[in-house]
Design a protein around this nucleic acid. Sequence first.
DNA 1: TATAAAAGTTAGATTAGTCTAACAATTTTT
DNA 2: AAAAATTGTTAGACTAATCTAACTTTTATA
Lengths: 230, 230
Amino acid sequence: MLSFTEENYLKALVELTVFEAESEEVGVNRLAHCLDVKPATVSDMVRKLKDKELVHYEKYGKISLTSEGRFKGMMVIRRHRLWETFLSSKLDFSWDEVHEIAEELEHVHSEKLINRLDEFLDFPEFDPHGDAIPNKLGEILLPSRKTLAEVEVGKSCRIIAVRDQVEVLQYMDRIELCINQEVTIAHREEFDGLTTITHGNQSSVVSPKLTENIFVVCSVCSKAKCTCDV
Amino acid sequence: MLSFTEENYLKALVELTVFEAESEEVGVNRLAHCLDVKPATVSDMVRKLKDKELVHYEKYGKISLTSEGRFKGMMVIRRHRLWETFLSSKLDFSWDEVHEIAEELEHVHSEKLINRLDEFLDFPEFDPHGDAIPNKLGEILLPSRKTLAEVEVGKSCRIIAVRDQVEVLQYMDRIELCINQEVTIAHREEFDGLTTITHGNQSSVVSPKLTENIFVVCSVCSKAKCTCDV
DNA sequence: TATAAAAGTTAGATTAGTCTAACAATTTTT
DNA sequence: AAAAATTGTTAGACTAATCTAACTTTTATA
Ligand SMILES: [Mn+2]
Ligand SMILES: [Mn+2]
Ligand SMILES: [Mn+2]
Ligand SMILES: [Mn+2]
């Protein structure tokens, strides 16, 4: 059985090498920063994960997941996102509250529990932040998506996901932006990226700090399967 | 924030000094046995819990809970029993499966979560094994109850709770005994305590190993409030 | 290509929780 | 009340996860 710590390393590795997907491998410093520990700590731990055949790694080299490591990490993310969905849809938590609680729930190991929960929730495809939920085989839909910061002036798009950070989520609530909403880029200031968007009957001026954390697809694509460029 | 380990010590102390209630205090050996660790380990840990003002304790003396320790321990039990109820009533787990999973879920700390869960379950009074669920103030109903082994021959009683142990629960399923069921003591062998009971249309011969783990009240009393002797 | 910068490793320390083995205090029995 | 049994404590060791500080390797740059 993996410890909390080991599970968190695998989860971070999936996020860095599968979701962010600049590359399938990652350095010690990057992983350390992501887990908020020192590189020395990661150096040690990665050796342990290698002994357990959860990562590929050679001294001074890059870290990547084995297929077992990837599966185990994906299961942590599956649990995290299913619990977030449960908290949101059954216990009426708001989307900015669920992450913190799911950080604990994701480490409850019972496989039967998570599959029953999945069924109880009617096999949801996405969590409250629009992130796809891996299935019990560890497979996940990775829709091609852009950030709102990348959409050209004049174009329209639909929000399909948001980075799961309390400040982002609360800010979006405040200006009444939400998932599935149609947004049009009315104007973008070259100087600082300040963007004027229209959504619903409103118009807001937002900074890249927000737009870089909002993921969109072009308006005409279906939420689940969009593969076009916005 | 308390660690898993500290929470398990407090939970065990509540079980020994509140529920079993031979006495409000307990020795190092007894607690060690209950937690499946060595007395040396408990000696150390109890000093730590004393520093945190969770227990009363003097070297070579007995251990007892402070009111803060009692409250914190009671909250662990509240979480345990609410999750067991959730697993049983919402996710269709059988009563012998829920304990193991609740041992992990009970350490998820969010107070808001547990109060929302309580509401979602419609404020249940008892868990699937008939044990009362402490309220958010740490108060709990401790109904006077006997074990089935103590009921006299010829008398009838109703099962209100069962010790939460997989083997006991599975055995009861097998002979079709369950909570709220009416049972009559038809005969008891002096020699070895083997007891013949009638329940429903059946009759079974059961040993003290079973009857000592089944809690009952007299038939006419209400489940929740019985204070009479069977 | 030599040097500087960045990235990564190692050694040694710390904390939590556990153990065994030896010892000490308390309680029970004779 | 002395001896025996039980109960509890301490010392020393171990593992997991972390840190800092010093050192080494790799990469980038002048
Ligand atoms: Mn999250
Ligand atoms: Mn999420
Ligand atoms: Mn239980
Ligand atoms: Mn129970």
